[in-house]
């Protein structure tokens, strides 16, 4: 992923070191109540969790066109001074340039281990979420279609949803997920959860006592899967079979989301 970042951005990011974390950082995402879809919500929550873990201040801004505002076409993205950065990994890198990191005490092989698990989550959970939203007929008609089109007037809502569907399907075809049937998708999710549980080994967080971006990412995805009401709740039921992951989700929610509200 880093290899795609142009030189200019790298220079800008280096320059970013000079300034501390500003107070007016904004995180842009689609409307949570009526618009956002499961995969996007998972990614937004993951970034929020990461920023909270780093104890960084930010303000969530809901925008109907957040997806189009984002430099990569994906939500969420943050605006920090003159910088606009989208998606979890680039945001983690950007935060690192400010000297803030959750992985300071980790060894090199632990870091690469973490990256491997993060890409596992991206490849399995994210694709499974996309599959459920766009390929499962019931979910598509009852949830995805009305929500994705909610911010557009007729007939633009149909056109936008249709064009997004074709983009997502193209992506799923490329990743080899389109030809899977729903049972195979469930199996993939179950395997992924099993792998994560094995790695967790009953610890508090994946890498010891303090959370990392991997915990943030897993929290984002699992919390969204567990709490989003869908006509098809099989995926949530699969996740519920892994109590140690549920514990992790609850721990992150307790420590980083509920506490803040109390303050």
């Amino acid at each position: 992923m880093t290899s795609h970042v142009p030189l200019m951005d790298k220079i800008q990011m280096e320059l970013g070191v000079l300034e501390p974390w500003p107070k007016d950082v904004k995180l842009y995402q689609p409307y949570e109540v009526e618009q956002i879809l499961l995969p996007d919500n998972a990614n937004c929550l993951a970034v929020q969790a990461f920023l909270r873990m780093c104890n960084l201040e930010f303000e969530v801004v809901s925008k109907a066109n957040a997806e189009f505002m984002s430099p990569s076409g994906k939500v969420p993205f943050i605006k920090c001074g003159a910088f606009v950065i989208s998606e979890l990994e680039p945001i983690v890198q950007f935060v690192n340039t400010k000297g803030i990191t959750l992985t300071a005490n980790m060894e090199g092989d632990q870091k690469s281990d973490m990256r491997a698990y993060m890409s596992l989550v991206h490849n399995v959970l994210e694709n499974a979420e996309l599959y459920i939203c766009w390929c499962d007929k019931e979910t598509y008609n009852e949830v995805t279609k009305p929500r994705n089109g909610s911010v557009y007037p007729w007939p633009l809502n149909h056109i936008q949803t249709w064009s997004k569907k074709s983009t997502v399907l193209k992506k799923l075809k490329m990743m080899g997920w389109f030809n899977k049937n729903i049972e195979q998708v469930y199996q993939e999710v179950e395997n992924c959860c099993q792998a994560l549980t094995d790695r967790l080994e009953g610890k508090e967080f994946f890498f010891g006592q303090s959370p990392t971006e991997l915990d943030a990412l897993i929290f984002g995805h699992l919390f969204t899967i567990l709490t989003t009401p869908l006509p098809n709740s099989n995926i949530a039921n699969i996740v519920r079979n892994f109590p140690s992951l549920i514990d992790l989700v609850q721990r992150v929610e307790e420590d980083y989301f509920k506490k803040k509200v109390k303050q």
């Binding site: 951005d9 925008k63 109907a64 066109n65 189009f68 505002m69 430099p71 606009v84 056109i159």
Partner: peptide, 24 residues
């Protein structure tokens, strides 16, 4: 008309970014 407004380059101002997206 459906008008799809996109940001031209990374250096475009944030105000332009805010008005991107599709309108009818």
């Amino acid at each position: 008309a459906i008008r799809n407004l996109g940001v031209l380059s990374k250096s475009s101002s944030f105000t332009i970014r805010e008005s991107s997206g599709a309108t009818l």
